[in-house]
Nucleic acid binder design. Structure first.
Lengths: 187, 187
DNA sequence: TCCATTTCTTATCTTTTGTTAATGTATTTA
DNA sequence: TAAATACATTAACAAAAGATAAGAAATGGA
């Protein structure tokens, strides 16, 4: 059980701010261990190729948590950029600071455990299951179900990357699904 | 720093045993929260399709840890089977028991954190990165590099599943790579 | 509102993958 | 040892995906 008073301990240490579309929260190479909670807007993490083409790794809409995973978990510089793709409002806290609080308030270790294992791990584990057990088409359908507030909103090219396919292929998949549903395609 | 005395606390609670090839450690539906350390042999986790065809999710050779993830992390019954694909020797401990020990020995929380975040999460996160950034062929090459003691040993059909492709496709990829390396293929 | 840019779709072609089945090769088991 | 089983490879075909480019639609700024 997470109790209100433990949440209050955390809230006092949160910083709140808003950034414009295109602004970057975390750059490649950063070792800052920060966690962010998206209160409004959307963020994408992406990887920059040698040939200067970026591939989106994940999309974070409202009420999702992101952070410099490479630093927080692996103690390495970030390999990703994290940028707002809309005007975005976040709550942020330094991870080491958070960890101090958790250590000083043993009861909050429940929050820590829940955070690390449930949220972040669950995401990664579920994605792997999708790649192993589902076809690209099924993976897209599952993504629509799991993230209905991302689909018509973030550019499809980002979603395609997240699903491990090309934007062109995603467009065809969407077409294929529409054709199936409507019997014949509606122009 | 993990200290010897903390490891000793854990060791006293480990159970050691060996099973034959084909025997099952964890069945689908199990809610037992157990962790296993593979001392010798190899284990595979797999998912049973409705049409009674199984898909391998992961392979665990020596010195790898596995457990009923669905139960330990999500408090749900296991959706996977975990079976020995060789004669396998494991060290095992009940997860709740382990957690008790960790709580009573605050210094061991380092072990806990390292275990959950580093090992298990690292695996999942790395796999997702592979699916998003690499082609099936590159994914296979990375797997060979990361698990040299699995490749010539576990059946290729299992490895193919882990990589999210069919066994036939993996065979073609291997052929393609061999042809590239040798200039012409060696029969 | 209009222009420029970005994004999505569509088309063409090539490559890869899935599917199914046959063949060859080990490995097991009786 | 012989037969049976499991596995890997290969082939043939269909389906899907990647790459590239061109056109349509949407978006964003001036």
């Amino acid at each position: 059980m997470i109790k209100l008073k433990h949440l209050l301990v955390l809230c006092r240490h949160l910083t709140i701010y808003t950034v414009e579309k295109g602004e970057v929260f975390i750059s490649k190479g950063s070792t800052k261990k920060q966690l962010f909670f998206v209160r409004r807007g959307m963020v994408r993490s992406y990887h920059m190729n040698d040939s200067s083409e970026d591939i989106t790794f994940q999309l974070f809409p409202e009420y999702h948590i992101f952070g410099n995973l490479h630093s927080v978990v692996f103690d390495k510089p970030s390999e990703f950029y994290y940028e707002a793709i809309e005007r975005t409002k976040v709550y942020t806290i330094d991870y080491d600071h958070l960890f101090d609080i958790l250590l000083k308030n043993p009861n909050t270790s429940v929050i820590h455990r829940k955070f690390i294992s449930k949220r972040v791990f669950h995401q990664a584990f579920n994605r792997v299951q999708g790649f192993v057990f589902l076809s690209p088409e099924e993976r897209y359908q599952k993504y629509v179900k799991d993230f209905p507030n991302v689909v018509g909103r973030a550019p499809d090219k980002y979603i395609a990357n997240v699903l491990g396919i090309t934007p062109v292929s995603l467009s065809r998949i969407r077409n294929r699904i529409a054709t199936k549903v409507n019997g014949a395609k509606v122009k």
